[in-house]
Design a binder for these strands. Sequence first.
DNA 1: TGGGGATTT
Length: 650
Amino acid sequence: MANLPIVQFEKKIIETVEQNPVVVIIGETGSGKSTQLSQMLHRKGYTDSGIVAVTQPRRVAAVSVSRRVAQELGVRLGEEVGYAIRFEDRTSERTQIKYLTDGVLLRESLSNPELNQYSVIILDEAHERSLNTDILLGLMKRLVGSRASNLKVLITSATLDGEKVSKFFSDCPLLTVPGKLFPVEIFYSKERPTSYVESSLKTALDIHVREPEGDVLIFMTGQDDIEKLVLKLEDKVRSLEEGSCMDAIILPLHGSLPPEMQVRVFSPPPPNCRRFIVATNIAETSLTVDGVVYVIDSGYVKQRQYNPATGMYSLDVVQVSKVQANQRAGRAGRTRPGKCYRLYPSRVYNDEFLDVTVPEIQRSSLAGTVLYLKSLDLPDIDILKFDFLDPPSTESLEDALKQLYLIDAIDENGSITSVGRTMAELPLEPSLSRTLIEANEYGCLSQALTVAAMLSAETNLLPNRSKSNEKKRKHPPLDLPDGSGFGDHIQLLQIFECWDENDYDIGWCKYYDLQVRGMLFVKEVRKQLSQIMQKIAKGSSDVQANQSRKGHQNYRNLRKALCIGYASQLAERMRHHNGYRTLGFKSQLVQVHPSSVLQPDDDGLYGSYVVYHELISTSRPYMRNVCAVERQWVMPILDKLEKLNVSKLR
DNA sequence: TGGGGATTT
């Protein structure tokens, strides 16, 4: 790997690390930072006094990069070089270089706040500003100031972000390592198109007719636009006169595509054939497609946002940041000089695009994050003043504190409770971890484990009821359990129990159009949660998936536990119709999501009270995943709500 | 009665 640009900087990098506790490395694409930094530090002897850790925002990256490094060092993966991701720890006593997801490092720091086993911690891809990386940045700042031993921290980031990170760490040194990209020529549109599907189509065809061979990668915002563009491209390409240009294959690429469709982009095209890959931002960082020479960038991306004032999520189409636009363009220069067609004017890039993507920590509900920080028992900490690189709003932190108070994770003075400590041990959102603890008291832990695991899975576990899917289905819609009228949590429980009854048969999932990947993930999560809860559980066999099934039941205890866990996500039905009013500190008018299996009574009215998993604002504000609860369980929560004094919670 | 960007413990 001697031809990687970073190798020429080894001396400089090591010198700087020796003299400084924190160093920021600006490593452009292809610099080799992810594989080489750890090896340099290993060569310099940093693995003699501890492990060199490298965090990654994604699981696949942790695995693939560690594999490469093991190969380069000629050792077996899992020995001197290993990785740790959720469900999989491939390290041993001999491990000196360890790649891990930043989520795993956060978990480790829960049981070992000093992170003593590490001599160096490298936070890779910090410019992506994932929620977990941002928490780690704050923790690292405290740690280098306090830890007795000589911890070294390296942070790799992007050009546009480096200065800021360096400033955050008391103006620590900043080194720039060039990348190994070929030049990419950028073309801007004169103005923003009225339709970026049409504009992409036109640009793609121009490339196909005029430009020499090389694949085209087109960045769109979502599945809908991708499908539209794929159809139009297929149509246009087919109508081109035969022999006037080379053949074409058009491939969609997005997260909800089944794995076998996703891997199609990794097989090379037949000779004299151009591939058009129409993708979401999955192709920005998560998947790298070889052979791309041309990039078309719509300049938009879908982002999930949380509004702490309403407690509501929305999925909005927003402009990409400069970092994202550059990342997209860079995809054209991996194998030879490329071209990037931006469907927006340079003025928009310069004046309107943010330098860096809005960090996730400013777009998420922070209940879990705040609980995590509270559980670390950091001395002299006011959670509202925690030193984040980009602090979330006070409103967002206060929203989190209120939620935590309502579910007994913190007391009226903002101190973490023993319930809160147990909750922090569980890799779940606070509402679900609270539910598990309560369910354990009521003897329905097994059921709650299943519900929590099902809700932890990626969305789209269940089949869609759309028209296009009705056509595709080989058989009429099958009867999945219906939650016995109590709602979606109960339905999820019943589905998993059916699967358990069918010996976790993959064919069973396929038959019912359940996402196989998702269901297997649920099974693993459930297992992990069971293991953690077993330490706390009262009955030892309480966690078996099938131990609760016996004929008709009203799931009373489970629903009661859910009511406690979702105390900050309660809603009361309006007197004469099926609209609900949320019962938090910020009342919202919302509807039960049409996909819900909650059943109305004989008068067509839903129950008076429900808890909801989330509020999502699409065409209207909806509650997604609801469960019917009873008035007598709700009243004590309302009492508590009245006594709430936010200013004391911090 | 309606719609799923990408991650992660």
